[in-house]
Structures are given as structure tokens and as C-alpha cells.
Amino acid sequence: MQFLRSLGPAVPGTAPVEAFRAGFGAFIGLGITGLCLLSTGVDLEYGLYLVAPLGASAVLLFAVPNSPLAQPWSAVVGNTAAALVSVAVSLVVHEPTLRIALAVALAIVVTFMLRAVHPPAGAVAMTAAMSPDAVEHLGFWFALAPIATGTASLVLIAVAYARLTGRRYPFRQFEQQNRYGTGDRVPAERLGLSETELSDILQRYRQSFNLGVEDLARLIGAAELQAAAHQTGAPTAGAIMSTNLITVRADTALGEVADLFRRHRFTSLPVVDEKQRFLGVIFQIHLISRARDDALRLDRGLMPALRRLIDPERDKPVLAIDVMSVTVPRAIATTPLGALLPLMGDTDVDAVPVLEYGKLIGIVTRTDLIAAMAREIARAAD
């Protein structure tokens, strides 16, 4: 039974929207890449145009963009090096089986040495070795087009597509600045472990081709938070949330929103409909960002733009719906504190709405979270 279970899926289930996101990205990537290759005047006589390995590269770039095997260096250098090796082998070795096996084997060796392991590179080598007439005709130009050109095109499209769909590609480097433009690690990743130590862990467990150092830091940080929640018996969102809420409607003017911010000293205001269904959240930074955009667009100072933004006498007042965020993290009453920490620690939000069947029943702010953690630390000390 254990053996049969091991033959089943090894990855967790994926949301349909993520599957369609990856598939649509591959569709766009291969379509545009095909047009790019046609524009280069690639020779179509031997059918070496949108070669099969580019489809395999598309799977990595659009479906698992966090994989070290899918990064730009691995993809472009790996595929190109494999093509060069295979063409060289094909021009020297004429026996088919030996030619194919040797081309793939040497491609693996070379991509390992170049730190550019990319599984489709094996298919690139095999494609060239199986097409000796085409290789004799194209020579080493095969490595340039379609391989290098096609792979580079896919990488550029994957970069743009990731940004448009809220993903990150290429993956963030360990020493890269955080979203605030400073050199500090984000709070969840301050592990006390250096990049070298994290790399050693990946090497020790032979996972360097499956995870990047940045991903490992993020996973360790998330695991530590979750373990801490288990050990302290941390409360749930329902136990620590604020329930006496001040909310606004979608058609509330920003002037009234600003008055509420000033009167209650809040940093966020939930937006609901007449039935208390949650619609979004307005953070103070939304008003500042909108005023800054208006100031740049109208060529005026920030304060005049802010006064104009919240002016109740405007002909067409700006409303809450015009600036609210609808993509903030959300929780339910039973969400544990350990799950709330990364929601606010690794995002730009400082309050998480708590919903019940789509209706707003409370909100957990960073103040609520800090107070709950302080209580748990005091209890643990006793």
C-alpha cells in the first residue's frame, strides 16, 4: 500500500486559476516567440522552427518560475550550450544511437559545469542529434536560431507576464533590497542564517536544483512562525480581532474618509455594502499615493493635491471605491495567530479583515497582533 501511494501525485493540488494562468502564459509565450523566429528568417526547410524543447522550457518558465532550473541563466545558457554541443557531436559522430546518447550526455556535463542545468536542454541536444541533415545544413547557426533566440524570447515574455499576473520572475536574490528599498531582510526571513549557510543546507540535502536560497529562507521563516503558534497555543483571529468597527460605503467621499482617519487615529478603514458584505479596505497610504499621482499629473504640490482630493465641494468627489484595495489578505474567525503573522509581516497591509460568509465581523490590526503576542510571551514566562 505504501508503495502504491508513492506512485501517486507528489505535489499538492493546484487552484484552477493558477493552472490557467500558467497555460495562458505558455500560449502567449510560444505564440510571440514563433512570430519572433519567423521575423529572423529562420530556415523552415527542415522543420526546426518552434522545436519541441521550447515547449518544455515554457512549462518551467510559466508553471514553476521559482525553480532554479527555470531561471534566465539556466534556460538561455543551458539550451544554447546543449545546442552547440549537439551540433559538434553530430558533425563528428555518424552512428545514430551513439550520436544521440553522446550528445545528451555531453550536454548534461556542460550545463552542469556552466551552472546552467535546464531539463529541456537534454531535449535540445536530442533534437539536433536526431536531425543530422538539418544540422549539416544549418551548422552552429542552429544554436542561435531557433534555440538561443527562441529561449531568450520566452524568458523576456515570462518576465513581463509574471509582473502582469502578480508573480515574481526571475526569483528574488538573497541580497536584493526588500520592497521598502532598504537592505534589511523582511521580518519573516530574519533567521540568523547567512546566505552561505542556507546554500550549504540545500547542497547537503541535494535540493539546490529544486529551491533557491530566497525560497528556503521564506519557508524556514514560515515554519518557525507556525511552530511557535503550536507551542504557545496561540489564539485565533476571532479571539483577538477588533469588533466595534468603523466602516465606510463604496460611495463615501474621500473627504469623509479623511475625517474618519483623523478622528479615530486609524490607519485603515474597511469598505462594506449595506448588508455588511466586505468590499475592500482603504489604507492611509492610498490617499497619499493618489494625491501624489494627482500632483505629478497636474504639476502641483503634494499638499494642494491632497486638499483637492478630499475637498467635499468638488464637482465630482473622489469616492472610497476609487482608491480602496480589493486584494488584501483575509481571515476567518478560526484562523490561528501563526497564520496571521505572515499575512501582515510579508505584505504591505497592516490590518486583515475577518469574514464570515463574506460579511465583515472584525478586523485584526498590527496593534491587536502585537498585544496578543505580548500576552502569550507573558504567559509562557510564567
Rank of each mutant, 00 (worst) to 15 (best):
L4S: 13
P9V: 05
G13Y: 11
T14H: 11
A15R: 15
G25T: 06
F27L: 12
I32N: 02
I32E: 04
G55A: 06
L60A: 03
V64I: 14
P65T: 05
N66H: 13
V92F: 08
T97G: 14
L98E: 07
L98C: 10
R99I: 02
F112P: 00
F112T: 13
F112S: 10
R115V: 09
P120N: 02
A123L: 01
V135F: 01
A145E: 07
V155T: 07
P170D: 00
R172T: 11
D184S: 12
L191D: 05
L193S: 02
L198V: 10
R204C: 10
S208M: 13
N210A: 15
R218E: 08
H230D: 11
G233N: 01
T236R: 08
T236W: 02
S242Q: 08
A250L: 10
T252D: 02
D259I: 15
R262K: 15
F266S: 03
D273Q: 04
F278R: 04
L279V: 04
G280E: 01
G280T: 07
I282A: 05
D294N: 15
R314W: 09
L319W: 04
T327H: 14
V354R: 01
K359C: 12
L360T: 01
M373W: 01
M373A: 07
A374H: 13
E376V: 14
I377L: 13
